[in-house]
C-alpha cells in the first residue's frame, strides 16, 4: 500500500530540491515484537524515493549492535540522520515521524543537508559556553500540531553544538519510557533525564535549562 499520496510526494519533491548535500537516513529495527517497524520502514522507503540526495540504511538493533551503540540507539524503531560524510549529527527520531512529526523530520533532513537557517550570533555565543554533555528528549504524540516545533528547536540546538544531542520520542510507541518520565502533556522536554518543561517554549527556555546544567556540572 502506498503511504505517501501523490500530493505529499509532490510537496516533498519540491521541498527536497533545497538539499545541498546528501543525507543518509539510518533506520534501526528488529524482528518481532516491533509494532511499528514495518510501517516505518515502508514510509522511509517511499520518502527516500522523492529525492536523489536521500539514502536509506537499514540496521537491526541486535545484529548491528556496535553501530547502534555508536549512535546511542536504544529503542526501535529509531532513525538517525547522517550527513554526506556518514557522520552522526546527534539528532534522532524514536518512533515513526508521521502525523505532524513529518514536519520536524523533513526539517531535520534539510538541516543536515545544509539547507537550514543559522541561529543568531547571540544564541551561538551562549551555546559556545556549553562544555558538558546535554541530552534533550522531546516527547510527542503524532496528533499534536505544535510538538514538531519543539522537536525542531531541540534538533537545531544539537546540530549547533557538539555537546548536545536531541531526540524525538513518540510517547505512545514508547509508553513505558513516557510513563517513567510522567508524560501526560506534550510536547514534554526532558534534559539530561532531570530538568523538564512542557510546551513548545521559545528557544530561550531551552537555553536557560541547558545553562542550568552547565552550572551544576
Amino acid at each position: 500500500m502506498k503511504l505517501l499520496n501523490d500530493e505529499v510526494q509532490a510537496q516533498l519533491k519540491t521541498v527536497f530540491e533545497n538539499m545541498q548535500k546528501d543525507v543518509t537516513i539510518a533506520l534501526f529495527i528488529k524482528e518481532d515484537p516491533c509494532e511499528t517497524c514495518q510501517e516505518t520502514s515502508d514510509f522511509l522507503n517511499e520518502l527516500v524515493a522523492t529525492s536523489p540526495h536521500l539514502h536509506l540504511k537499514m540496521y537491526d538493533i541486535e545484529r548491528d549492535h556496535a553501530i547502534a551503540e555508536q549512535y546511542n540507539v536504544k529503542m526501535v524503531p529509531s532513525i538517525v540522520l547522517l550527513d554526506q560524510d556518514q557522520q552522526y549529527q546527534r539528532i534522532k527520531f524514536n518512533g515513526i515521524p508521521a502525523g505532524h512529526e513529518i514536519n520536524s523530520f523533513v526539517k531535520g533532513i534539510l538541516e543536515v543537508a545544509g539547507a537550514g537557517a543559522p541561529l543568531s550570533g547571540e544564541v551561538m555565543d551562549r551555546l559556545s559556553e556549553v562544555k558538558h554533555p546535554v541530552n534533550i528528549k522531546v516527547f510527542v504524540t503524532l496528533g499534536c500540531p505544535h510538538c514538531s516545533g519543539a522537536v525542531e528547536k531541540a534538533h537545531k540546538l544539537a546540530l549547533s553544538n557538539e555537546y548536545i544531542d536531541a531526540e524525538m520520542i513518540e510517547a505512545q510507541t514508547f509508553y513505558d519510557l513516557s510513563d517513567r518520565f510522567n508524560v501526560s502533556s506534550v510536547p514534554k522536554i526532558v534534559i539530561n533525564d532531570d530538568f523538564e518543561f512542557v510546551g513548545n517554549q521559545p528557544l530561550e527556555t531551552f537555553l536557560e535549562e541547558i545553562e542550568k546544567i552547565q552550572a551544576v556540572n
Binding site: 504524540t141 500540531p145 505512545q172 508524560v183 501526560s184 502533556s185 512542557v198 510546551g199
Partner: peptide, 18 residues
C-alpha cells in the same frame, strides 16, 4: 499539576490517557 494530568489540548494529550 499542569503537565501532570492537567491538559489543555485533547488532540495532543488524549493518546496519553488511553
Amino acid at each position: 499539576l499542569a503537565g501532570k494530568g492537567v491538559a489543555y489540548c485533547a488532540i495532543c494529550d488524549g493518546p496519553l490517557f488511553r
